[in-house]
Design a protein around this nucleic acid. Sequence first.
DNA 1: CATGAATGAGCATTCATTCAT
DNA 2: CATGAATGAATGCTCATTCAT
Lengths: 208, 208, 208, 208
Amino acid sequence: MERAVKHIESKVKDKQLIETRRMEIVNAAVELFVKKGFHKTTVREIARKFGMSVGTLYEYIRTKEDILFLVCDYIHSSVGTRVRPSLGTTGNAREKLVNAIRSYYMIIDEMQDYIIFLYQETKSLPPAARKYIFESEREMTAIFEEIISGGVKDGTFKVGKNDVKLIANEIMVSGQMWAFRRWMLQKNYSLAKYVEAKCRLTLKELTS
Amino acid sequence: MERAVKHIESKVKDKQLIETRRMEIVNAAVELFVKKGFHKTTVREIARKFGMSVGTLYEYIRTKEDILFLVCDYIHSSVGTRVRPSLGTTGNAREKLVNAIRSYYMIIDEMQDYIIFLYQETKSLPPAARKYIFESEREMTAIFEEIISGGVKDGTFKVGKNDVKLIANEIMVSGQMWAFRRWMLQKNYSLAKYVEAKCRLTLKELTS
Amino acid sequence: MERAVKHIESKVKDKQLIETRRMEIVNAAVELFVKKGFHKTTVREIARKFGMSVGTLYEYIRTKEDILFLVCDYIHSSVGTRVRPSLGTTGNAREKLVNAIRSYYMIIDEMQDYIIFLYQETKSLPPAARKYIFESEREMTAIFEEIISGGVKDGTFKVGKNDVKLIANEIMVSGQMWAFRRWMLQKNYSLAKYVEAKCRLTLKELTS
Amino acid sequence: MERAVKHIESKVKDKQLIETRRMEIVNAAVELFVKKGFHKTTVREIARKFGMSVGTLYEYIRTKEDILFLVCDYIHSSVGTRVRPSLGTTGNAREKLVNAIRSYYMIIDEMQDYIIFLYQETKSLPPAARKYIFESEREMTAIFEEIISGGVKDGTFKVGKNDVKLIANEIMVSGQMWAFRRWMLQKNYSLAKYVEAKCRLTLKELTS
DNA sequence: CATGAATGAGCATTCATTCAT
DNA sequence: CATGAATGAATGCTCATTCAT
């Protein structure tokens, strides 16, 4: 859930400046990408939006795909940054899990467009970058695994080792489903009800 | 789950021929789309692959987006066509559900690349076409809802009305998850185990 | 003012049929050409409009430009056919001239769109065809020259030989001007007034 | 008779440069348009002729039609710029008129190809641009109207108010006729003779 | 004679990327 | 470092013409 490790070349030396400028680039790009998609957004538009020239933009990246990576990374780490604090909650495993799910789903709800974007454009990333995003996803799944495992250890939950991974995955995916199946779900459920239902059903899986 | 209703204009009159040619176009395009994505595939490539000239290709469609729709529709109806027969199975609700899940997941396993493509490029479709695809998805979800509802009626399952929809959705999404989270899941599970686990967990949700 | 002499090749032998079909082609094309211009009208459209296949269309012409020629020739000869009878009027030179002008201008008024088209697309004709159209125009001018010359001979008019040609030309062009400067003239004059004025002014030129 | 007001978008910011480049574009295009017509001239040819890449060309215009407008505007304003100084001549109305006609006709003679082009391709302009060109034409006609009106006021000429407009129109059109009926006129007249005759006949109309 | 599917060269336009200033 | 004009390959799409049936 740390920020990008993957190195993106830049013609500029000043590392501080690189960081600042790239932040601006991401802020400009993310909105455009989400609205129009990666392919339909032009580099010119991004430059114009963040108020600099194309030339300057290209001082900080090498290709348009670099911007995509920067944006994907930004979204992912944003989710990460926001999810992590919500998971340190005290309480028993059951409470921990419910809180974690609630937090994660609320964040997804707020970042719907970003989540959808992430899923739709990952493919356009070069393999290395894609791997990096996957890794990030894996880490987040691991958090839910841990909570569940903790519950298994202390006897709160009763499921096989293999099922732990599966259920963690399902929690993740059900959350994302709230975003990219919204045309189906958000007519029938409020976020609160969706969270409640998902928690209830998950606990059924874990306890009975 | 019927084939496309949405009309796509063609300069050719012979309806039989249109059908044949469009099938060829889809076959050529689907592979390229899946491999390179919609935007990175050129109309020229598709034409070359299906062994005809660009001109001929454009006799049967109006825009590149039409091809995308044709492909999306094809994938969707393929899944539909293959899923449907597996659902007529006799037996009690529990057996019906397990069979339906197994069939659906097996089909997804075989059509992994297509499923992933569908999720990633739906956004590029014009609104009308997108709606059509959603409708198709909704219908398929309804099948699972029916099976579950049947089980609720005859007392096999015990869940609230609202949960029926949710669980049906989760069955669908977990299936699709098998495809687009394969980098995570397919290392730890075989398809058979995945199906078995999903059925077991779902039945827990439905019965306890 | 006779119909086309220029030979246009045809794959069909039956001369009667050629004549009939070409008439249909012209009828279909003329409207489209006038509305959309030559270049923006497609051969397909023409074929569709006259209710036959492109293949059949191409049995009777060799290139799209042939159609243009056919149309130009048709318009020109239509004007000719309609003008000629109006010129046999009896009476003195003055009356003859006034009648001829009135007739010609009325015909132009009715055929405005065609006249404009003629002037705008002549350039697209191959040189030979263009020459043919010019010839046709020359002949029509000659009619006015004759009437004026007649008047000069019998003493009604008093102008030099050179001026005869010039005035005849101006009569023609003023007529055409009614069509292609309509945005300027037709706000300020009715056709009747325009004819009256032109006649009056021309007679001034010829008599004073 | 001022230069273009209608705004044409450009991706380039430097207004001076836009002016310069557009001038080059016009110079390249006008020759090609006149020789081959608008539709048969390709954007590539224009770019090649003005010695730059297509991309660069498109930095200064938005569509091919913009070039057409630029060219039409250029021709029109060239005529305007050249005609205007010739009209300030002192002298009585008669002299003024003769000088104006002579100047205008000489300019037309020099710019024959351009004039013809203007008449043939105006139709291809989008309505707004067409209106603009018409306006420009109207202004030029007004100059002749003024001279004649002046003559009427001081008693030199004797014509009704309505005829003023008509005669001004005819002067314009007879001038343009020198260009687009050259195949007929330029065999029989030298420019000088044509001007002399037109002046003589017009004065007859105005005085007798 | 009639048909209309097939062809493919040709076109206008876009846009990521570079590089001289 | 910053700028933005220049580049040109690449793309989606059209349409006159042909030819097998």
